[in-house]
Design a binder for these strands. Structure first.
Lengths: 191, 191
DNA sequence: TATTTTACATACATGACGTATGTCAATGCA
DNA sequence: TGCATTGACATACGTCATGTATGTAAAATA
């Protein structure tokens, strides 16, 4: 199958980056783990950051798909936006996502809004907010800014939960606080 | 004066980390820039991440001091919290802060809440929120979670402003959006 | 069939980090 | 005063990781 080598490298890199971090992962090791050498890696991804970008894009896509599904389950309007945020928080509890997308990604690829993958999660939040704004459900506010802040809050919620001593207890608290914050954008109080 | 070498290394590292990032900065280069060698660096800071931790602590302290001053200027209560957040956003526009504290810090030192410096900014937000909660100005919510989300939103606001094509125009939008979000914690709508 | 491109492997050059060791001055102590 | 110890660095070395240059076999193409 075409792309098999690429897929193997991607999977191995994903694992290595998650376990040792981007800086700590050796290209020799992660290629050898799937029976290849760095030659294959440079051929397919150009350099080490190119590999990171590909891994990030994959993870980002998975997160966005999950969030979209959660949003659809929640129906229309405001509930969908909150469900999407909650899904984002829960996804970010995955150590792979955390280390690769939330920590190493911004440090080595720069600000997420500038990623080639465009950060699908951010884009979805922006879209959802834009629709709610047009229907007057959320106040007049710069949509780009609002989406960015919401996502930032969600990301930090996840990091907080993950590093807390009792993540199981922390998660509902984080979700509650996130909901309150988000409702700051509501045009009228929807309690 | 005692600590002069340490101060020189700290200043040089701060500059090098800001310009080339933590991973890209060479210890040989940044020590040579102030007429020293890596020997001095290892003697004072243990290893490269120890140096980063020291630089982060310095920057974090400066941010916290600025935010505290801004909060004091704004008086008491809710206004002080918003002023503190705004000050945090503006400070984070500094490329040094952005690269070292917001991007490389979390990637190489781990989650900010676990830093030895304790992240003074986060601690101040927590304290301010705690007082507002006791006086009934903010709703009942987990204070740790709320502080974390607020700070995360502020951080992302700053990153968004910094990477926007027109930061001058973006800053007021970010501040407005941040204010709305924060007011989600208000017990009654304070418009 | 000849040629070009793809898909890797291999070898090499460069540079970075950490550690082990050496030096010299300051300080404590007898 | 003389000696031992510690602090504050510099120097040399080993290891390892990245990137590049080169080689090669298979596949596609003409």
């Amino acid at each position: 199958m075409i792309g098999e080598t690429r897929a193997k490298l991607l999977a191995s890199a994903r694992k290595a980056f998650a376990e040792k971090g981007f800086a700590g992962a050796s290209m020799d090791d992660l290629t050898a783990a799937v029976g290849l050498t760095r030659g294959a890696l440079y051929h397919h991804f150009g350099d080490k950051t190119g590999l990171l970008a590909a891994v990030v894009e994959q993870l980002d896509g998975e997160m966005a798909a999950r969030a979209a599904a959660a949003g659809a389950d929640a129906g229309e309007g405001w509930a969908a936006l909150e469900a999407q945020g909650a899904s984002y928080i829960e996804a970010a509890l995955d150590p792979e996502i955390q280390r690769i997308v939330l920590l190493d990604g911004p440090a080595f690829l720069g600000d997420p809004s500038l990623w080639p993958s465009q950060n699908a999660c951010l884009e979805d939040t922006r879209r959802a907010l834009g629709q709610l704004s047009q229907s007057g459900i959320v106040k007049a506010v710069d949509i780009d800014a609002a989406a960015r802040l919401l996502n930032g809050a969600a990301l930090n919620a996840a990091l907080w939960v993950a590093t807390s001593s009792d993540p199981g207890a922390a998660l509902p608290k984080a979700l509650e606080a996130f909901g309150m914050l988000a409702r700051g954008f509501l045009a009228d109080k929807g309690e």
